[in-house]
Design a binder for these strands. Structure first.
Lengths: 192, 192
DNA sequence: CGATATACGGAACTTGCGGTCTCGTAAACT
DNA sequence: AGTTTACGAGACCGCAAGTTCCGTATATCG
């Protein structure tokens, strides 16, 4: 590579500035000028790294979420609760929560972003669910593996609806705990 | 009332133009100038009726959705499928589907809109669910009425996730049919 | 060392859209 | 008749995304 190399730390500084501004001022007020100023960086340096504001926010938020593989709790019921908890906490991050609707809108209007979102998030979640379901089949809790897409919708949907659509406070003991039993029953019912 | 009265038909013409442009060009390209031109109307006439683009799109989309009270099918299982079908078809309207993420983002960033959304949609849906649950209790299918907010999340969430988050084709026989059994089981499990 | 290529911060610039205002005109009420 | 409000058309403002240019710094290649 010829020329001056990319300066170390700018990527992180910009992503951190995005997260801070999202938390402090929301998605609309989190402008590229403000991000660059906050990170002590020129706008050109930002656009050299990300093609658009949507890409930048996506990268910043993604980077702050670590989607962990689900633990094997020994029972399907326990695994369901663990998965729900992971989804809830990943969606409930402080700076993420308020930006989620706008970010989703951007993702849906940019095919490249949509593809990466499907691979980075939905695909990984789906893979984890398949593992969880296969363990349940091996234990004899399910007779066969149900359609993972349906399972994904059944588990992710209620958490998404609550945090994203309702603005209501989370119920006693957390969303995951409240939803684990009924959604476990839903998966069992799916097995018939 | 003094002065020239509002011209009849402009409200409808503008709302219809919004729906057409949403379907043809998506939310971003559906600009107020384009809407006014399409409706054969000046921009001032638009802003005399709606305070912002978000209000306008909200009104146009709302107006195209008729949220019907759920039928009493005689069983909770049947009622659940009917409710799921109603949610699915209301979310699956051609022009609504692609605009939904952006519209939701606008709603979430405008407190006045958020209130109206909660009243017009969430509140009405919640009321219908309470009726459905009370019928189930009267029939003895449930021992007591579960938390309607949880039920709302459990029923609406999976449909929302599928149509709004996944871009995947709907499963065999429709979403409502595929989800009715497992989600009915979830409600029954909620009763313990 | 010197030429070239790329990065940097800063700032000017372009473009597009939401939203407001003005103008000349039309249609109602008092 | 006079007042008030609506109308279409279009000019206008403000703001934010995205691009370009400037002077400068830092790397590789010959």
């Amino acid at each position: 590579m010829r020329g001056r190399p990319r300066e170390e730390g700018i990527d992180d500084a910009v992503r951190e500035a995005v997260r801070a501004l999202l938390a402090e001022t929301g998605y609309q007020r989190c402008t590229i000028d403000a991000v660059a100023a906050r990170a002590g960086v020129g706008k050109a340096a930002v656009y050299r790294r990300w093609r658009s504001k949507a890409e930048l926010v996506f990268a910043a938020v993604i980077h702050s979420v670590d989607l962990e593989p689900p633990e094997d709790t020994g029972t399907l019921r326990g695994d369901v609760e663990a998965v729900l908890g992971a989804i809830e906490s990943s969606l409930d991050g402080v700076e993420v929560k308020s930006a989620l609707p706008s970010l989703l809108a951007d993702i849906r209007s940019d095919p490249a972003l949509e593809t990466r979102f499907a691979e980075l998030f939905l695909g990984r979640e789906l893979g984890y669910l398949v593992e969880m379901l296969d363990r349940a089949v091996a234990r004899g809790e399910l007779s066969q593996r149900p359609d993972p897409l349906l399972v994904h919708a059944i588990l992710l949907g209620p958490v998404l609806a609550w945090l994203h659509l309702f603005a209501d406070p989370v119920p006693q003991g957390g969303l995951a705990a409240s939803l684990a039993s009924p959604l476990h029953a839903a998966l069992v019912a799916l097995d018939d």
